[in-house]
Design a binder for these strands. Structure first.
Lengths: 313, 313
DNA sequence: CTTTGCAAG
DNA sequence: CTTGTAAAG
């Protein structure tokens, strides 16, 4: 696939699928754009025991379901996932039952964590066709804010814990940066290490951090933007990677630019000016079981696209 | 034109123009629905000196202009009015200049009164191709709330004053009813009588009151609804009609059901379940000059439709 | 730029 | 049901 420079991209026709454009400021010469059509491995042989997990920051589930341009149903049909993790559902507790009815058949187990402090804000979920052994909302680790905003739900399966999380944005003016680093990242890190004592952990969702320069369209211009500060990037490394969690997409695709988020402002998606904010981080003990960690950049309906993980069991 | 009962209307095909339906609870047998296609007088002979004024509660001017399904331009072309009065522009002072640019050519004189207490609330305007002799915003009659919500603008022409007004809604639970009656209606009544000392007055706009049972779809069910309380109806009579102002539509069309407002909820417009809330009230001294007081129920883009007045000079 | 909730009608 | 607003991303 052809590599275009910024200036060429701006004038390029929209025949080209945007995610095949390397719209990166100062790309290194061996970087190439992620293309799900050419970079996914062949499917596992029939009968191989595996689980397919998907994650999507939907930026308001009501709006997404209203759209119908892309429903969770179509996603299920196309990808045949076992479990779907959602972030930014923006649901209130009172709306959950109504929304459940609008969901796809066959995924009878769904677990919804809603913000109780700010209505219609944040919110995470796990929707599964496999019944989990147990479910936890929040971390249970402290009596503070952490568990008031519906940012974590954990499902325990036979061979791993699955965590769907929406990490707090550091906000305009980075006014929530210190909370994010010192409270949130620290607590989440403690939580996953605690769980890992009994089983491997799959941590997924919108981690609200582009870890390296390769993970963001314009690194130089975003050094003080929420999600790409030195503090957040270092904390991402220290809290998760240095604790033995593996960034599955990066491991599988070193040198590949694969965004999962494009701001709505100024045609970010059309020009592939994006960020990689959504991840699967897995315990080292199961990192070798990952068959495919992939991105579906052509799925619209949110400012994030879904990502997936095929894990051999 | 055929008179249908409520039950027939509900099942009637939408071939029928809704405003030709008499969807009135307990209509009297001599009432008939207003139909602009059959009930407007022939145009005045060429060269007759007259002025055509229109009034429209647009329920947000930005949204209306965005629609383009019906622009002020089309209204001008169709009706060839001289002056257009608007209510519920919902404009802020800072947006007025931008909006002016989007308006029709040939109407170079426009005067905008915006709420300064609540942003994007209320707001009235007069747009004219005739240059007024003078313009007043508010009543100037008291230092109270009256003039803070952009509810009155007055233009003085050679032979009459024209007032575009948006009378305060009494609100859910009638919490603003006493303000509406004791402060607003009283002040407006004083103001128009004061102006009338020098010239006849045309008071137009959303007067937020269905005066009689004939002016509302379901009178019995709305006895305590804002706009149809005994208090508002009596105040309408006492403040305006008893002071010598003539309800031009009712004078021209006694026994005719002509609504100007249909709630968005439950298909009010489709079933012609409406209210007559928008009026031209004119000084007795010019009441005989009214050639036509009419309603344009087929014009969409707001929960109110425009109404018009052709006044011989 | 888009979602959410909210006030107001 | 629809318009505005604001906060948030």
């Amino acid at each position: 696939s052809e590599v275009l420079k910024t200036d060429e991209i701006i004038s390029s026709s929209n025949q080209i699928e945007p995610w095949t454009l390397l719209a990166h400021k100062k790309p290194q010469k061996d970087w190439k754009p992620y293309n799900p059509k050419t970079m996914r491995p062949p499917p596992l042989p029939e009968g191989t025991k595996c689980v397919k997990v998907m994650t999507w920051n939907v930026n308001g589930l009501r709006a997404l379901l209203k759209l119908e341009s892309f429903s969770a149903l179509q996603l299920a049909q196309r990808e045949n996932f076992d479990v779907l993790c959602l972030q930014e559902t923006k649901l209130q507790v009172k709306d959950v039952e109504e929304i459940k009815k609008a969901l796809i058949d066959g995924y009878d187990h769904s677990f919804w964590s809603c913000s109780v402090s700010k209505l219609g804000y944040s919110g995470t979920a796990i929707i599964s066709r496999i019944k989990p052994l147990s479910v936890r909302y929040g971390t249970g680790l402290s009596g503070s804010d952490h568990d008031m905003e519906g940012r974590i739900v954990t499902a325990e399966f036979d061979s791993f814990y699955l965590i769907s999380t929406y990490v707090p944005n550091s906000g305009d003016g980075l006014k929530r940066l210190s909370y994010r680093i010192e409270e949130w990242d620290r607590t989440l890190s403690t939580y996953i290490k605690e769980l890992e004592k009994s089983k491997p952990v799959v941590l997924t969702g919108d981690l609200n951090c582009a870890h390296e320069e390769i993970d963001i369209y314009n690194p130089a211009g975003n050094k003080r933007s929420a999600g790409f500060t030195k503090e957040e990037r270092e904390s991402f490394g220290a809290s998760f990677l240095d604790k033995g969690f593996v960034d599955t997409f990066r491991k599988q695709h070193p040198g590949v630019v694969g965004y999962t988020y494009w701001g709505y402002r100024h045609g970010g998606r059309k020009n592939n000016r994006g960020w990689r904010l959504d991840y699967f981080l897995v315990s080292e003990s199961i990192a070798a079981n990952v068959h495919d960690s992939y991105i579906l950049p052509d799925i619209n309906g949110s400012d994030h696209c879904p990502i997936g993980l095929v894990l051999k069991l």
